[in-house]
């Protein structure tokens, strides 16, 4: 018995050690980042001309890509959740492809699609449209890498809506669109918000596909992650300021996601 309990407690000890090691590995870099720069350097970095332009470009492109993702992704998520067809199951698996494929590959694939020599390139070129290395290409890259997170979360959120509830809504006089907007959408809303937050975070951090498909041109296609890459070669303080801003945004999102359900309850009057 004594041997058994010794073995058990040493196993527990090893488990704790492993866990603490990984947690440290995950958190230490952020701690180092936070303490690495004196406030004066931060100020200098934040007033650097590259900072404002990359920040604005990142905000503008990610809010655009998020809006497009939500508008196009909500009906897709709804269809995936409510259809029992084989096609829907196949599409659902395929939609997740950009999650598991490296962003650099997505960048090459986008070039092969929209590039001058790509699948749609000649057709777009004939009407005078060249997408690569423009702000539109930044948005496109962000949509491709981030939308799967929204669609996946959205589909599982819509699965919370029992078909019976929609039937009841219809018998209570609601047309199909009214039943969707007043019953299905509000029930799925928390899950959709989580999906939108994940998609936004992913778009904000997008680097590889953007670099290949949109390039790294200050003021035009240089988003914050690309600006970090660029600044590391010239001014490490600038890179750190960018990194701190992105880390802070991520932190805020994490906290928001954690407290989302509580906030929702609170806004509903906190009724039991």
């Amino acid at each position: 018995m004594r041997g058994g309990s010794w073995r058990q407690s040493s196993l527990t000890g090893i488990g704790v050690l492993f866990g603490v090691t990984l947690a440290g590995l995950l958190l230490l870099p952020f701690f180092a980042l936070a303490i690495s720069t004196p406030a004066s350097d931060l100020l200098e970095g934040a007033t650097h001309p590259l900072f404002a332009s990359a920040l604005l470009l990142s905000l503008r492109t990610t809010l655009t890509s998020l809006s497009i993702t939500v508008v196009l992704g909500t009906p897709l998520a709804w269809w995936l959740a409510s259809s029992s067809s084989k096609t829907a199951r196949v599409i659902e698996v395929l939609v997740g492809l950009p999650i598991v494929i490296p962003p650099a590959v997505v960048g090459v694939a986008l070039l092969q699609t929209f590039g001058r020599e790509g699948l749609l390139g000649p057709a777009l070129g004939s009407v005078g449209i060249a997408l690569p290395f423009t702000e539109i290409s930044v948005v496109l890259a962000q949509i491709v890498v981030s939308a799967p997170f929204f669609v996946k979360a959205g589909a599982s959120a819509f699965r919370e809506v029992r078909p019976d509830m929609l039937i009841v809504a219809r018998t209570l006089g609601a047309s199909p669109p009214v039943a969707f907007f007043r019953v299905a959408l509000p029930i799925a809303l928390p899950g959709l918000l989580v999906g939108a937050s994940l998609a936004w975070a992913r778009a904000l951090g997008e680097f590889g596909a953007t670099l290949l498909f949109a390039g790294n041109m200050p003021g035009r296609t240089q988003t914050m992650p690309l600006a970090i890459f660029y600044a590391l070669e010239s001014d490490v303080r600038l890179a750190i300021v960018f990194s701190l801003v992105l880390a802070a945004v991520g932190m805020l999102l994490l906290v928001a996601l954690r407290f989302l359900p509580a906030l929702r309850n609170f806004m509903r009057g906190g009724n039991a």
Partner: peptide
């Protein structure tokens, strides 16, 4: 459905 004036209470009640 919405014009049939049917009162429908499903299994599990289907409350919103």
């Amino acid at each position: 459905i919405e014009e049939r004036r049917i009162g429908y209470v499903p299994q599990g009640f289907g409350l919103f």
